[in-house]
Design a protein around this nucleic acid. Structure first.
Lengths: 118, 118
DNA sequence: CCCCTTGTTCGATGATCGTAGAACATCGAA
DNA sequence: TTCGATGTTCTACGATCATCGAACAAGGGG
């Protein structure tokens, strides 16, 4: 698809505290993480957020660059997963803490799953 | 001191995930949190960071507004403490996770304690 | 081969951020 | 009361950010 220069995914050892926290400092991105938190791979098009397609693409890139998610391309579609083990390896407990708080405070509720590839 | 309009400190219930994560998304601020992590109150002037006085004041304000630290004024000086219990109450485990990662990765090492009020 | 779908990238815009220096306010001390 | 120390606020600047729409690239399907 569009200029897809084989998206770069940082190695586990390359994750930094600041970039991960920065990536998690946005409601929409927290919402994406929540949607992916069950560990299942989701289709890009399945993600429903109250922002333009290009903006969602941007947020997915920030999460990917931070090493929080992984985006896989298959044909003309993309599939996203949470790199839970990698984040856990670098920052033990962080995702659990953030997910628990996000759930309790309803942060990221704006992001949902809709019809689309799964 | 300068226009000290009785610094506002948010109530425990007012802490939000996004503002706390945003506040922790800066090396200098993480450094301040590290310096305060032993629970002891520190004098403002004791904080040594490679930024201008006004910039450090700004960072302390961000931390204070996020509910992460508390600033107390006594005479002409200020004393800062970490609101560990409050942050723990709202986001259990978050500070521990961040402090552990910060220590491991040496994030915030630029902030130290120097001579001054304690 | 043409077209439709799917995401990415580009360009632009308004907002926020980190930073610094100068001015200021407040308090204690001389 | 005058002065020095201590932080805060103001103003400004460059950088980054979230956002959008439009253009674009890569496949798949007809």
């Amino acid at each position: 698809m569009g200029g897809m220069r084989q998206a770069r995914h940082p190695d586990v050892t390359e994750l930094t505290l600041v970039s991960v926290l920065t990536a998690l400092s946005d409601p929409i991105r927290v919402g994406v993480v929540r949607v992916l938190s069950d560990g299942r791979e989701r289709g890009w098009g399945e993600l429903r957020a109250p922002v333009a397609k290009s903006t969602l693409s941007h947020h997915l890139r920030v999460l990917r660059d931070a090493g929080i998610t992984r985006t896989r391309q298959e044909g003309t579609r993309c599939y996203v997963t949470l790199r839970r083990d990698d984040v856990e390896a670098r920052f033990p407990g962080l995702l659990d803490v953030v997910l628990a708080a996000a759930h309790a405070d309803d942060v990221g509720r704006q992001v949902e799953l809709g019809a689309g590839a799964s």
